[in-house]
Design a binder for these strands. Sequence first.
DNA 1: TTGTAGGCGTTATCAG
DNA 2: CTGATAACGCCTACAA
Lengths: 326, 326
Amino acid sequence: MANIKEIARISGVSVTTVSRVLNNHPYVSDDKRNAVLNTIEQLNYRRNMNAVHLITGRTKSVAVIMPLIRIYYFSIIMEGLAQEALLAQYRLVLCQTNYRPEEELKVLEMLRNKEIDGVVIVSTSLKPEVIEEYTAYGPIVTCQNSGESRFSSVYIEHYAAFRHGLQYLADKGYRSIGYCDGRKHGSSSSIRQSAFRDFHRESGLPLHEEWMIFDCLNEEHGAALLHRLSAMEERPEAIIVAGDHVAAALMIEAGKQGIRIPEDLAVIGFDNQPIGKLLGLTTIDNKLFEMGAAAFQTIHEQIHGDGGSQPVHRKLDYELIERSSV
Amino acid sequence: MANIKEIARISGVSVTTVSRVLNNHPYVSDDKRNAVLNTIEQLNYRRNMNAVHLITGRTKSVAVIMPLIRIYYFSIIMEGLAQEALLAQYRLVLCQTNYRPEEELKVLEMLRNKEIDGVVIVSTSLKPEVIEEYTAYGPIVTCQNSGESRFSSVYIEHYAAFRHGLQYLADKGYRSIGYCDGRKHGSSSSIRQSAFRDFHRESGLPLHEEWMIFDCLNEEHGAALLHRLSAMEERPEAIIVAGDHVAAALMIEAGKQGIRIPEDLAVIGFDNQPIGKLLGLTTIDNKLFEMGAAAFQTIHEQIHGDGGSQPVHRKLDYELIERSSV
DNA sequence: TTGTAGGCGTTATCAG
DNA sequence: CTGATAACGCCTACAA
C-alpha cells in the first residue's frame, strides 16, 4: 500500500506538501498540488485514517447506546441521530446493549480508548455517577433528564407529559383511569409511576393497584391487556398506555371483542406511531426524531467546543395529539 | 495521558512486556505481570486503540449501509447484525444513506481508508460492478442475491417467495390478484414485478396493469390503497402486498369500510410483522433477523479467513405463515 | 511557499 | 522469559 512518503517521492515534493494537499491547506503552488494530485490518482492512493486518528486524537465518530434497535421508540431516535451525523460527516457506532450494564460500560470505555469522540446514551441501566466518571474523556449526552449532572441531556419531561395525558382524560370526564407500561423498573417508567400516583393523590380520583399494569412491551401484550381489563370486576373507563403499538393492539383486540373505543374504554398512547394514527389513537408525541437530531447536535457542539464547555440540558416539547380514542 | 512507555518505566520493565500483559500473551513472569497490572491500575491507564488500529491494520468494526433505520424491514436486520456483532465483540457503524449512492460510496471508501474491516450492504443503489471494485480492500456482504459477483451475499429468493405467495392465492381459488409494492424501481421490487408477470403469463390468470400499484411505503399509503381498490370498476379478489405494515393498514381500513377480509378481499403480506400477526394477516416471513445475523457471521468469517477466501452466497429459507386473511 | 525532523502509542521482530 | 528497536502512516512545529 502506498503511503504519503511514496506519494511525496514520486511527485518530487516533501511529505508536508502532500499532507497539505490532502488537507486542503493553503500555501501550495498549483504546480506541486497538481503533481501530487496526479500521483495520488495514479497510485490510487487513500489516506490511512487510523494514522490520522492516532495523531489528531479524534475519529469523527460517535457511539450510540440503545437497548434494542427494532423498538419504534429507539429506531426513530436513531434516525434523527443518523440524519444529523450524515450532515456533519460523522460516523455513528450503534451499540445495541440489550439493557446490559456491562455492555454499556464497554462503550464508555471506548471513549477512554479514543475510539470515539463522544457517546449518546438513549436509555441506560447505568447510574449517573458511573456516567459522570467518563465525562473526563469526552462529551456524553443522554436522552433522559439527568438533572444537574456533569453530562448533557436532551429530553422531554416524561412526568409532565404523563400528567398532561391524565389530566386530559380527567377533563374529558373519565373518573377511573388505568395505566400500562413496559418494563416496570425502567427509569422513565418510574417517573410515569410517580406521575400516576401523584395525579391520583392530588385529583382525588380512585386508584386501584390492579389498574397499574406492567411488562407490556409488544403487540401481543397489548392484546392480552384488553383481556385482562375485560376480566376485571371493576374496569377503568380509560387507560393510558406507554407505547402506541401496545395501545393499537389493545384497540384492535377491543374491536374484535365488541368493546367500543372510547365509549366503553378510552385510550391514550405515547410516541405517535403510524399505526396509532391509522386507528385514530389519541397520543402524546414525544418528538423522537427531533430528540435524536438534537442529541447529535449537542454532542457535536460539545466536541467542537473548546473542551471546557459546560453540560447542556435541553428540554424538548411534547405534543398531545387529539384523535378519536378519547 | 499515560502511555505504554510510562507504564513500562514505572513498572521497571520494557514496553514489550507491557504490551504482552495488555494482550494476554504468555511468557511473562507473574512478578512483572503484577507489577505492570498494578501501575496500570494506579495510573488508570487505557490503551489508545487508534495506535492499535494503525499497527494491526484492523479496527474490529464493520459498517452497515441501509437507507432508513426506522423501516421495520431494516431495523430487524440491524438487530440481527447487532446481536452477532455483540457476540463477536465487533463495532457496527450504521450508515443511513437515504438511498443516496454518493453516501454509499463514501462508506465503501472507508474500507479503503482502513476505518472499517468490512461492509454489510442491506440495500443499495450501487451497481454490482462498483461494489466489486472495493472487494480488493476488504470483505463485502450484501443482503440481496448478487448472483456470481465477487462479493458475498445472504439472501432469500424474492422471486420464489413472491411466486409462492401468488400460487398460494391461486390454489385457494382466487382468480384475480393485485400487487402492491414500495419503490417501483428498487431492486427487489423489480424482481417481484417479474415474478408477478411471469406468474400471470404461466398461469393464464388475467393481469390488469391497474392492479400493480407502487409507492406504498407506509400505513397511510396502505389505507389509501384500499380506497383505490374500492374505486376500481373491476377489483381483484386478492392482493399481495410487500410489507405487512401496509397490508395491515389496508385491513384496518377495510374493516372501517365494511369490506370483509378475506371474503371480499384476500390479503397476503411480507415480513411477518407483529401488527400483522395481531390482525391475522397471512404473510411470508423472510427471516429478517436471521438474515442480519447470517450477514454478520459471513463477514466475520471473511475477515478472519486468510484473505483469499472466496465469496459466499448463502440462501436463506422464507416461510409462508398461514393465518386468516386468505 | 517548501522541507526536515520529531512524535502520536502501539505491536512486531529478533536477538539475547 | 525479556528487551531494544524498528515499523505503522500521518501531522505539524520549526526552520529555511
